[in-house]
Computed example of a mutant assay.
Amino acid sequence: MLDRTNGLAAGRLRRRIPDGSTPHGLRKAAARRLAEAGCTPLQIMAITGHRSLKEVTHYTLAVNQVALAEEAINAIS
């Protein structure tokens, strides 16, 4: 059986992932970065494995809010 803890620790060393990172945190970071890159919620779900739009929205809300605010300012400029 694979020891996931040791596997994650080895992966951190190879990828320079900060200590204290968890699979949950890495998944959240991936969702946020994908949203920042302009990926759609369905694209994000396909990559991160989230099962519902609600889950993806939870992680990407702040990114979407910034983008929507910038679009709104540009619209009235």
Results as ranks from 00 to 15, higher is better:
residue 1 M to C: 11
residue 2 L to N: 09
residue 2 L to Y: 13
residue 3 D to S: 06
residue 3 D to F: 06
residue 3 D to V: 04
residue 4 R to Y: 08
residue 4 R to W: 12
residue 4 R to N: 03
residue 4 R to S: 10
residue 5 T to S: 14
residue 5 T to W: 11
residue 6 N to E: 13
residue 7 G to M: 00
residue 8 L to T: 01
residue 8 L to C: 05
residue 9 A to E: 13
residue 9 A to T: 13
residue 11 G to W: 13
residue 11 G to H: 13
residue 11 G to N: 10
residue 12 R to L: 11
residue 12 R to E: 13
residue 12 R to G: 05
residue 13 L to R: 13
residue 14 R to N: 10
residue 14 R to A: 11
residue 15 R to C: 13
residue 15 R to V: 06
residue 15 R to L: 15
residue 17 I to W: 14
residue 17 I to T: 14
residue 19 D to P: 06
residue 19 D to H: 09
residue 19 D to W: 08
residue 20 G to Q: 03
residue 20 G to I: 09
residue 21 S to A: 15
residue 21 S to V: 10
residue 21 S to N: 09
residue 22 T to K: 05
residue 23 P to N: 08
residue 23 P to G: 05
residue 24 H to W: 08
residue 25 G to K: 14
residue 25 G to L: 13
residue 25 G to P: 08
residue 26 L to A: 13
residue 27 R to W: 11
residue 28 K to W: 04
residue 29 A to Y: 10
residue 29 A to C: 09
residue 31 A to V: 02
residue 32 R to Y: 04
residue 32 R to M: 14
residue 33 R to T: 10
residue 33 R to F: 12
residue 34 L to Y: 01
residue 35 A to H: 00
residue 36 E to F: 06
residue 39 C to P: 01
residue 39 C to K: 08
residue 39 C to E: 04
residue 39 C to S: 10
residue 40 T to F: 04
residue 41 P to H: 02
residue 41 P to A: 03
residue 42 L to D: 15
residue 42 L to T: 14
residue 43 Q to L: 09
residue 43 Q to P: 04
residue 43 Q to F: 07
residue 43 Q to H: 12
residue 43 Q to A: 08
residue 43 Q to M: 12
residue 44 I to G: 00
residue 44 I to D: 00
residue 44 I to L: 02
residue 45 M to G: 00
residue 45 M to C: 03
residue 45 M to Y: 00
residue 45 M to T: 03
residue 46 A to R: 15
residue 46 A to G: 15
residue 47 I to T: 14
residue 47 I to D: 03
residue 48 T to V: 12
residue 48 T to A: 05
residue 49 G to I: 04
residue 52 S to A: 12
residue 52 S to Y: 11
residue 53 L to R: 07
residue 53 L to F: 06
residue 53 L to Q: 06
residue 54 K to W: 08
residue 55 E to R: 02
residue 56 V to E: 02
residue 56 V to I: 02
residue 56 V to K: 01
residue 56 V to W: 00
residue 57 T to C: 02
residue 58 H to D: 04
residue 58 H to Q: 12
residue 59 Y to V: 01
residue 60 T to E: 00
residue 60 T to C: 00
residue 60 T to K: 00
residue 60 T to M: 02
residue 60 T to R: 00
residue 62 A to W: 01
residue 62 A to V: 12
residue 63 V to K: 00
residue 63 V to R: 02
residue 64 N to G: 10
residue 64 N to D: 05
residue 65 Q to T: 14
residue 65 Q to H: 07
residue 65 Q to W: 03
residue 66 V to T: 11
residue 66 V to D: 13
residue 66 V to S: 09
residue 66 V to Y: 05
residue 67 A to D: 12
residue 67 A to H: 09
residue 68 L to C: 09
residue 69 A to S: 06
residue 69 A to N: 03
residue 70 E to A: 10
residue 71 E to N: 11
residue 72 A to K: 07
residue 75 A to F: 14
residue 76 I to D: 14
